[in-house]
Computed example of a mutant assay.
Amino acid sequence: MSRKKNSRQWARLRILCSGGLHLMTIIPDALELVRELIPNSASQLFLHAPRAADEDMQEATVLGVLPPPNGYFYGDAANFGVVAPGVSQAQARARASHVLEVQLGSSAAPFGTVTLLREEGPAFDRDDEEDLGRVANYFDYALRNADSAGAGMSGTIEDEAMLLATLGGDILFLSDSAGALLDLLASQEQQVFDRRTLPPFCLRLVESVVHGERYPWRLPAGTLDLAGGVLEARAQWMSSGSQDVLHHRTVGIFLKYVVPMPLRIWRALGSVELSPQQMEVAFWMGLGGGREAARSRMDVSDAVLRDCVKAVYEKFGCTSEAGLLAILRPTVSRM
């Protein structure tokens, strides 16, 4: 299938995968680019669950809960080739006329798979296979070089929510926003969120509150990578009571859906026409450190860097690094 190679979109994908974010956080944006680079009707990402250390497993046994996630799934097209609970991958593929798949990671240590489906039109060809292999290399890099969720990053809060639960995990109150966030988490684990009981992630937070004195190293807070952002959660007591009536107490869980700053900056760069070099310079400058940050990340001469910075300022309508940061970095909240 002959098509013009889009160097600007390839550069955007490479930059997106180099910002230190987990692949699940960037995957909605990444698959939008993949659709432009390799025309398809639907895309899917499966990631295997990371293996828990023996220490984590022992702790989980003590607290009676399992550490999430159970694995990740993301599909960018509803009702087409999407694997829902109880539907096998084979059944999902049967809905597509053409399927192209590549493994992430090595055969000895696979991370997961990326699958493209085409409902109609010509079959995927050798160029498509080569391009998907290139995509997989970028995705592998993102997985290998991702920081832990929210580690040292700032971001913008796009949604806040709360729920109330008993110590046994029964939900007493669930806001619409909290339900939507937990639905998203459940869909990534290919499960269905039962709105009457807490999912494992929230249950661990409740256990952290209940056993706070017994396990002081377990803070009642945590983060998880979600499609397009990071879920930040914390738990606290919502009703008073002595240890004798502990089972009557209520725990509140407060959720925030945060878009990390690297992703916000990357999205802002798509609003203007930049060359691949200019885009990369602007991205690293936006993350902080100015020209030196870009120089340390890129193999360019001082003259080329100077020209790129000048072009970036002109295209964003600013005259200084401070002006550029004001455009690329909206008001932030620490994750």
Rank of each mutant, 00 (worst) to 15 (best):
L185F: 07
A142L: 00
V135A: 00
R134T: 09
A161D: 07
F193N: 03
F139M: 06
E130M: 12
N145D: 07
S154G: 12
Y141K: 02
L163F: 10
F173T: 15
L182T: 11
A142M: 02
L185P: 01
L184H: 06
D147S: 11
G133D: 15
F124V: 15
E189I: 05
D159S: 12
G179W: 04
G168Q: 11
D128I: 07
D159E: 13
E189G: 05
D140Q: 01
G169D: 09
T156C: 04
D159I: 05
E160V: 14
M153I: 13
A151T: 08
L174A: 07
G152W: 01
G168F: 02
L164F: 12
A165Y: 04
F139V: 01
F173Q: 15
A136V: 01
N145W: 00
L181R: 05
F139N: 02
E130S: 12
L163K: 05
D125M: 12
A142F: 06
R144Q: 12
Y138M: 00
T156G: 03
A186I: 11
S175I: 06
L132S: 05
G169M: 09
M162R: 11
L174W: 07
D131K: 05
F139L: 08
N137V: 12
D140W: 02
E160G: 05
T166H: 07
Q191A: 15
L163N: 05
G155N: 00
F173A: 15
M153E: 13
D125R: 10
T166V: 01
L181E: 02
A149H: 07
M162G: 11
L182H: 12
E189D: 08
L167P: 03
M153N: 10
G168D: 13
A151V: 10
D183R: 13
N137G: 12
M153F: 09
G179N: 10
Q190S: 01
S175W: 06
D128L: 12
F124I: 15
G152A: 04
D140T: 06
Q191W: 05
L181N: 02
L143F: 02
D128C: 11
D170Q: 14
G152F: 06
A136W: 01
Q188A: 01
L163V: 05
G155T: 02
A178M: 08
S175C: 09
